[in-house]
């Protein structure tokens, strides 16, 4: 077991290395570097700029620059933001908790919807309740997140006015008070709900299929022929087998959320990392962009790692491959 986890961990190291190389190469491709602002200034002579570039190490071979860059990252130094004039880590730190909070609420909602829906439609398949869930699944599967989120914002944000249409907290409340947290929750519900209602579809589908599959397995028949009541068969046997893989998908779910944050935070003007990413690209603040890509890339790699590990704990067959 430990061998599998350890090996899986070691697989991640080259992945991280390649990721960092790609991000570094992309960063080099991005127009402008730390001294672009200065070199536009006519009062500074080209010789002086060259000197500055030399000093900043921008004329060194790429691998030396990469070495400095990566060792900085390992020490938590992502450089400085051009627009905010403060270290990138601080810019991101301001936003990261908003994103984590949003992701957490989204995950909770996703499973809150998925598990009852999946169980009901799997257990009572081909009844009216299953038809409703399946129909919902069809629609959810075909609806792109950004359109659904826009419509949600239009209806519940603007038309009905139940939820705020932007920001992460109302400016009228004081920090650390009870109202402050209520306001935070109020702001996060609509984006989280929009994502969860779409994201839940995959899990519902999977759970339903798992339950239907398990329903006709021999072990279920054995249990039934022994006279075990149906309810008990479900709680003791079928659900246990069907829910475990769902738990394992947690990590992949996180990976999926990372992609969604960019869209959802932009639509709801929610000040998280995803929105920061889009606005930084607009502002050409590339040190922030690279830092975010590197961080979220790391997060998705971790998500996949997490799922692989849970999956191997749950299902020993995975370990063999």
């Amino acid at each position: 077991m430990w061998k599998f986890i350890l090996r899986r961990f070691f697989v991640m190291i080259p992945q991280l290395f390649i990721l960092s190389l790609i991000v570094f190469a992309l960063a080099k491709q991005m127009p402008g570097d730390a001294l672009t602002g200065i070199s536009m200034d006519p009062r500074i002579s080209p010789e002086r700029i060259y000197e500055l570039r030399e000093k900043a190490g921008l004329n060194d071979p790429w691998y030396e620059q990469y070495g400095r860059w990566i060792s900085g990252i390992i020490h938590g130094d992502f450089g400085k933001s051009y627009t905010h004039k403060i270290p990138v880590t601080e810019v991101i730190a301001e936003r990261i908790w908003n994103t984590v909070f949003l992701a957490l609420i989204t995950l909770i909602l996703t499973y809150l919807f998925a598990i009852p829906m999946g169980i009901l439609s799997g257990r009572y398949n081909d009844t009216w309740i299953d038809k409703i869930v399946t129909g919902y699944n069809y629609l959810g599967f075909a609806t792109p997140l950004f359109i659904f989120a826009l419509i949600m914002l239009f209806v519940f944000g603007f038309s009905v006015g139940w939820f705020p249409t932007g920001g992460s907290v109302s400016s009228k409340v004081d920090a650390q008070t009870f109202e402050y947290y209520v306001s935070k929750l109020h702001h996060v519900i609509l984006p989280a709900l929009s994502t969860a209602l779409i994201a839940t579809v995959g899990t519902v589908q999977y759970l339903r299929n798992e339950i239907i599959d398990n329903k006709f397995k021999d072990y279920t028949r054995t249990a039934r022929s022994k006279g075990i009541p149906d309810n008990k068969i479900y709680t003791r046997h079928i659900l246990r087998n069907s829910l475990l893989p769902i738990a394992a998908f947690l990590g992949y779910e996180i990976t999926g959320l990372v992609g969604g944050t960019v869209i959802i935070e932009t639509i709801f003007s929610y000040p998280g990392v995803g929105q920061l990413f889009i606005s930084s690209i607009g502002l050409r603040d590339f040190s922030v962009v690279t830092a975010i890509v590197m961080m979220l890339g790391f997060a998705t790699l971790l998500g996949t790692l997490l799922s692989d590990i849970i999956l191997s704990l749950v299902d020993p067959r995975v370990r063999v491959e």
Binding site: L26, V258, G259, V262, I281, V293, L296, G297, A299, T300
Partner: peptide, 12 residues
């Protein structure tokens, strides 16, 4: 598959 593809596409 383990890359944040939306973001990577945007950067590219």
């Amino acid at each position: 598959m383990s890359l944040p593809s939306t973001m990577m596409i945007i950067v590219f």
